[in-house]
């Protein structure tokens, strides 16, 4: 990345600028790939961009940064995503 020779408070883009935000999570979204119809609703609504869209339109959740808001589980038309309390997942 190009750094600018200016002495001022310039911030540079970085993944996890506020640390690993996955630690904020109380409930963890668990995706059931068998129920997923690849509609991408979760991908478009995710506020944190932690739902990763793949080439074939299937999705994956980035647990390192997912804040566990549950928007994805709420918008999922087939209820393929369920919110499970952290540490109680099977």
């Amino acid at each position: 990345m190009k750094k600018y020779p200016i002495i001022t408070s310039i911030s540079y883009p970085k993944k996890g600028a506020m640390g690993k935000t996955g630690t904020w999570r109380v409930f963890k979204p668990i995706l059931d790939q068998n129920k997923c119809v690849k509609c991408l609703q979760c991908w478009i609504y995710c506020p944190e961009a932690t739902i990763i869209r793949k080439e074939d339109n299937s999705v994956e959740i980035d647990y390192e940064y997912c804040k566990g808001c549950g928007v994805c589980a709420n918008v999922c038309p087939t209820k393929a995503i369920t919110m499970v309390r952290e540490g109680e997942e099977k």
Binding site: G16, M18, P47, A49, E64
Partner: peptide, 15 residues
Amino acid sequence: YIPGSAACPGCPASM
């Protein structure tokens, strides 16, 4: 929009 921001969970502004 890079993951790991300071937004509240479920933030409409980040959406």
